[in-house]
Design a binder for these strands. Sequence first.
DNA 1: GATGAATGAGTTTTCATTCAT
DNA 2: GATGAATGAAAACTCATTCAT
Lengths: 213, 213, 213, 213
Amino acid sequence: MQNEYLVRHKKRPSRREREKARQRRDMLEAALILFSEKGYHNVTMHEIASKAEFAIGTLYKFFRNKEDLYKALILEKTEAFHAAIVEAIGEHDGEVDRLRNYIRVKSEIFRVHVPVIRLYFSEQYGESFNLMAELNDRIRQRHEESLKVLADVFESGMRKNRFRRIADPHALAVALDGISTAFLFRWLEKPEERTFPEDPEAILDILLKGLVD
Amino acid sequence: MQNEYLVRHKKRPSRREREKARQRRDMLEAALILFSEKGYHNVTMHEIASKAEFAIGTLYKFFRNKEDLYKALILEKTEAFHAAIVEAIGEHDGEVDRLRNYIRVKSEIFRVHVPVIRLYFSEQYGESFNLMAELNDRIRQRHEESLKVLADVFESGMRKNRFRRIADPHALAVALDGISTAFLFRWLEKPEERTFPEDPEAILDILLKGLVD
Amino acid sequence: MQNEYLVRHKKRPSRREREKARQRRDMLEAALILFSEKGYHNVTMHEIASKAEFAIGTLYKFFRNKEDLYKALILEKTEAFHAAIVEAIGEHDGEVDRLRNYIRVKSEIFRVHVPVIRLYFSEQYGESFNLMAELNDRIRQRHEESLKVLADVFESGMRKNRFRRIADPHALAVALDGISTAFLFRWLEKPEERTFPEDPEAILDILLKGLVD
Amino acid sequence: MQNEYLVRHKKRPSRREREKARQRRDMLEAALILFSEKGYHNVTMHEIASKAEFAIGTLYKFFRNKEDLYKALILEKTEAFHAAIVEAIGEHDGEVDRLRNYIRVKSEIFRVHVPVIRLYFSEQYGESFNLMAELNDRIRQRHEESLKVLADVFESGMRKNRFRRIADPHALAVALDGISTAFLFRWLEKPEERTFPEDPEAILDILLKGLVD
DNA sequence: GATGAATGAGTTTTCATTCAT
DNA sequence: GATGAATGAAAACTCATTCAT
C-alpha cells in the first residue's frame, strides 16, 4: 500500500530524519497533554513550544499553524486506534471471540490513552465541528470502517446460525459501539469509581443474551 | 408551593416582563444557533448581539458575561430535556412500554432540537470540560438521574419476572442510553440518510432479544 | 453684584425651586462621597444616581454630563471655602490674630470636609489638570485671592512695624499657606496619629520666631 | 554586596540587554509625557505604544498591564529623586548649608523634571489614591525618610546652639518641605512669571529669621 | 417631568504568526 | 537551520449618554 520510496524511506531514515521525527513526536506529545487538559482554545502555541522545549519558530517549521498541528495530532491517533481496533477484531476465529477482543482492545485504548480519547470525542461533538470539516470527515470515515468490520462479524455469525437475526448486522455494530462507548465514558469520567463491569464480557453479554424470551 | 401572588404573577406577567422574557429568548436563540454552528470560542458577543438585533450593551444587561450566557443556554435546555425524558418514562404502565416511550421521546428531542443536542454533547466531551466545572456537574447529575429512572424500570421488570436478570439494572440503563444515543447520533450527522431504524422498537429489540440461545 | 431678579429669587424661592435645590444638593452630596472615595474615573453616573436615589435620566436633567457635575461640585466647595477663609482673616483686628484665625479656620475646613479636601487637591495636581482648564483657572484664581488677602495682613503688620521685613509680604503668604497645608495634609493622611501640632499657634510660631539670631 | 559576575554584568551589558533597556526607557518616556499631559485614565495603551513607536504587543512584553507600567514609572522616579534629595542634604557640613543645598537640589528637580513632578503629586493626592495602595505606601515611606533626614539637620543645629528651639525638629522639617513645595508649585504652574524667589536663600530665610522679636 | 432601557464607541489585553539575526 | 522579539488584529466588556414612554 506504500510506494517504494516511502518504504525505503522507512527502512533507512537518515540520522537527520530520525532526529526530525523525534522532534515532531515531542511536539505532538506536548500538544496532546496540553490540549486534553485545557482544550484547544485555551492552549497557546507558546505553551506548546515551551513544554516541548523548542522555540516557537521551530514549532512553526513543523506545523504550518495551530490548526495544522491539531489536525496532525488527532489524525495520527485516530489512524493508530482504528488500525488497532481492526486488527483486534481479525485476531481471533470465532465471532464471539472477535467481539470480545474488540471490546477488550477498545477498553485498553480508553484506559491507556485517556488524553487522546478526550480530545477525540471533543472533536467528534465539539467546537471545531463545522470548522475543521476535513478532519471530521476522516474521523467519521474511519469510524464507519470500524463499524463495517464489526458488522461483518455479526453477518458472519448469522450466516453460520451462531447469532439470531434479531436485527440488521450494521445496526448491531452501531449498538455494540454505542454500548461499549457508554460504559467506557463512565469510566473515563470517574476512573476511581469502578463502575465499569469487571470484565468486557459483561458488556457483550447484554447484547448476546436477550432480556425477554 | 407557590403563593397566590406568585401564581397570579406568573399568570399575568406585566407587559414589561413579557417583553423582557421575549428579548432574553431571542438572545439565547441567536446564541444557540451560532454556538452550535461554530462552537463557543468561535462566536463573538458582537455576533450574538448582532444576530439577535440588539446592541452589545443590551446583551450584557441580560447576561453578565459570555460564560454566563452559555451556561444559561445549556442549563435551561438540559433541564427541559431531562424533565421531558423522565416524564416520558413515567407515562406508561408496562416496563416495555416505558422503555419504548423513552426512546420515542429521546428521538423526538434529537430530531427537533438538533442545534442544542450538538451543543449538549460538545459540552459533555468538549473543551469547557475542565473549565466550566459547575455546568458539567449539573449536566452529569441530570444524566445520572435519567439513568436511575431507567434502571428502576429494568429493576421493576426483573422483579415481575418480565425481564431476565442478564445484567445489573443500572448497567442495562447505561446500555440502553448508549445504544439509543449511538443511533441518534448517526441520524444527527447525516439526517438525509435514513440509517436510523424505522421505528424505535428496532432499537429496543436489540436489548430485548438476545443474540444467542 | 447680583441683579434684582436673582435677589428676589433668592429671597422667595417657590416650593418647586426649593425642591429642585434640595435634589441638586443630594446629587452633589452623593457624588462627593463617591468621588472622594474612588476617584473621578472610578465612579459611574449610575452609581451616583443610585446613591442619590434618583433615576439616571434625572441626574442628567441637572447636569449636562459627568464633567459638568464634577465641575459644579468642586467649584461650589471651592467658593464656599474661599469665602470662609477670607471672612476668617477679616474677623479679627491684630495681624497675629488674623493669621491665627486663618490657620484655625483652614484647619476646621480640613477636619470637617475631608472628602472635599481630597478632591480639591487631587484636582489641583491630579488628572483632569489640563483637561478641565476652566475649572483649574477658577480654583487658582480663588487661591490667588486668598494669598492676596493674606499678603495684605503681612503688609499691614510690616507697615505698623509689628513684623520685621524679612521677606516680601506675598512670599510670606505663600510660605504660610505652604506650611499650614503641609501640616494639615499629614493629618489628612493619618488622622489617628496626632502628628498635627496641638494648636494652630505652633504652626504660626514657626513663621513668627526665627530660627537664628 | 554584588558578586563579581553581577558587577561585570553591569559594566558590560550585552548588546541585547542594552537594546532592551533602551526600549524600556523609550516606553516609560512616552508614557511619562502622555500621563503628565492627560492623566492616567485619559491615556490609552495604544497611545503610549504609538508614541514610543512600538506595537501594542511589544509594550505588553515589557509591562504586564497598564497599572504595572504606571507603577514602574512613578516608582523609579521617586527612588531617584529621593536619593538625590538625601544625597544633597549630606553633601555639606554646616546645618544652614545643608538646608540651602536641599532647597537648591529640590528646585533643580522641579525645574528639570516638570512632567514627573506633576505625576508625582497627582499620585499623592489624586485618584489612584485608594486604588494603588502599594505604590502610595512606598511614596509616603520615601517622603517620611526625607523628612527624617531633614529633621536630623534641625536637631543637629539645635544641639550645637546654632538654631533656636522654636519648634520640634520634625515639625520644622515638615514646614521647610511645605514652604519649598509651595514656592516650587507656583513656579510649576506659571514658569514664565518668575514668582519664585531669585535664589533659594530667600525661602530659607523665612524660616531662619523670625517675623517678630 | 421623571424614568431607565437601550445604545455603541472605546479600552484593555491576548496570542497566532512572521522574519531578521 | 533555529531562534524569539516584534507585530497587530481581534475579542470581551464598560459606561456615558440618549430618548421613547
